[in-house]
Nucleic acid binder design. Structure first.
Lengths: 342, 342
DNA sequence: ACCCATTTTGCATACGTATGAAAGGCTGAA
DNA sequence: TTCAGCCTTTCATACGTATGCAAAATGGGT
């Protein structure tokens, strides 16, 4: 790899000081006289020297690398998370090592093993679950884990998520208040806490209004599977008058099927609501009513959780549940006769 | 960090062999007897030992980390690239360390310095430029660089890109063949080779048909700026009858403005074409005619280029230019009177 | 049993860096 | 001028691992 590697020993030689002085010059909180510092600065600049982060990690036990596991970036929500999380950590002097897992999380344990090989200072799991065996392993290694937009029962796992249940509840309340009486639900991946909590909140909201779920499908967080679920749900004569789709990504698919395959009007014939408020939800083509996840705050809490765990070690796992925001747009409307004359 | 770190010395002690034997057991191509191997395997398993990749890098000069610089993940094209590139490299035993740069690339040099601190085995620059000074630095360090979807004149920089110029040309030819005579163009970021080449090909195609560019705007690869550019382009009475938008991401914005703000029909009043064929281009809401970039082949070529450079050192920079594919969808149609009666 | 060629093993060292401890240098007060 | 306290520097070592080299072990042939 390095044909021309400059080390702290080269700098020390040129500056006429010890390697130890060079190291201290580049280590915050240590003492170097002004005179020595200037000699080192000049030598380092002349030779183009920068400390080797990996060699440092051997001594300090800190790699300044955070492992990030994501299952897919197809859903606009996660690219935004990756981008913001990387930036936020970059600002803290850390960098993100990306690992791609499968949607069903069946290879997360293997991937986490690989992550640990890199002596990461922490791990963020976005849209993935971790076995308790691996959670124990990370805990024993002192590597903090933060679940992003997921919850697990393991007390060793910190988590930052939106209040998915309250979000689902709010969407049910909204649809009921708009006069909807036959509400359907299209689920994400059944093994995900986000899917479970959103559905739970939604059903609770319906129940509070004396309703039950009118129809249910499964989209597995995939555009094509959500399309298929919508086709099935709307195949017969008994159709929902509103659909809560577990996330925006799938909601776009459902909307596309309803409009372009079935010739239905949204919200005239059926209201559609999603969850996330990813960019296309705001685009006029979709104009989707949804729950906005506050990605900035989630990222900030994730970084804060990681930094605290890294700094203080042990510590109890931290769970942060942030409120989402109901954003009402053009995919929902009052279900009244006047609605149909527009 | 590690409270309970298991080293090869621990394994050696338990197995009753030397640390050297443990190391050889975990290093491909070295010799260990079956008897010794079994003792080491059992000890390593009992202790949960895995080699420390970072410590290894000190000896081998190989970190098995690839630095990836991306400017934004807002455009659906790049999340897909990150995902596939990460997977492809993961399969080769490498992992991607992500760095987020700004769109205008003004901080790429600083970021590249940081990347080099991690002793990366290679760097991929997606949608970013690198200064020749830094290119020289990487070259001196023996770190191969591959530009992804970008071209630069520096002979030290390998690149993998689509034939953007031919793609732009093909789109011009298509629009002309469909009878369009007033073709507009909305540019991406002016400092990007993709933007320059796509526009160049488009203008060459128009010129070959005896036409010139009817109108031009700049969208800087941003949804909101593309919206503004569309509003300006269609503000007066002299409007284009077709628009080539430099990438799909911006094309969606232009389509949204034309339809929902100006009440224009696509393709009845104006045809719109993009570049990339990102997932929403295939969605019925957009149904966009575009040039498909073969991401799988681009990723494969990028990985092949990196692996070759890492394995063989020096080597001449490699430039791979792949053909895109014209995908004709519902955003374009024949511009005839019969068109207007539908 | 002996010899030879090959495989296997352990020793010693190095990779690039940070750090504890001891020694040296500097500064201010008596 | 001397002394005490604090700052600065260097030496020696360690971090976890791979590898060159010499010695030991192994297996096959005579």
């Amino acid at each position: 790899m390095a044909n021309d590697k400059v080390t702290s020993n080269d700098v020390a030689r040129l500056a006429g000081v010890s390697q130890s002085a060079v190291s201290r010059y580049f280590t915050p909180g240590t003492s170097v006289s002004k005179k020595t510092a200037e000699k080192i600065r000049a030598a380092a600049e002349e030779l183009g020297y920068r400390p080797n982060v990996l060699a440092r990690s051997l001594i300090t036990g800190r790699s300044r690398i955070i492992g990030l596991v994501v299952a897919y970036l197809e859903n606009y929500f996660y690219p935004e998370v990756v981008e913001r999380l990387s930036k936020a950590l970059q600002d803290q002097g850390y960098h993100v090592l990306v690992f791609i897992s499968s949607i069903a999380s069946e290879n997360v344990d293997q991937i986490t093993q690989e992550i640990l090989d890199y002596q990461v200072d922490g791990i963020v799991l976005a849209s993935a679950n971790m076995s308790s065996e691996l959670a124990a392993r990370c805990h024993a290694s002192g590597v903090p884990i933060v679940l992003f937009n997921r919850l697990q029962d393991d007390v060793r796992l910190s988590a930052v998520t939106s209040d998915n249940r309250a979000g689902g509840r709010a969407l049910a309340d909204l649809l009921v208040s708009l006069g909807h009486t036959r509400c359907g639900y299209i689920a994400g991946f059944e093994g995900a806490s986000t899917q479970r909590d959103r559905e739970q909140g939604f059903c609770e909201g319906l129940e509070a209004a004396g309703l039950t779920l009118f129809a249910r499908g499964v989209g597995n967080f995939r555009y094509d599977e959500a399309q298929a679920a919508a086709r099935r749900m709307f195949a017969g004569p008994d159709r929902p008058d509103a659909v809560f789709v577990c996330n925006d990504h799938m909601a776009f698919a459902v909307m596309d099927v309803l409009r372009f395959e079935l010739g239905l009007a949204i919200p005239g014939d059926v209201s559609v609501v999603g969850f996330d408020d990813v960019p296309p939800a705001r685009w006029p083509a979709y104009n989707l009513t949804t729950i906005r996840q506050n990605v900035d705050d989630m990222v900030a809490e994730t970084v804060a959780t990681l930094m605290q765990s890294i700094k203080e070690g042990e510590g109890a796992a931290r769970r942060v549940i942030l409120d989402g925001t109901l954003v009402q747009r053009g995919s929902t409307a009052q279900k009244t006769p006047t609605d149909e004359t527009r």
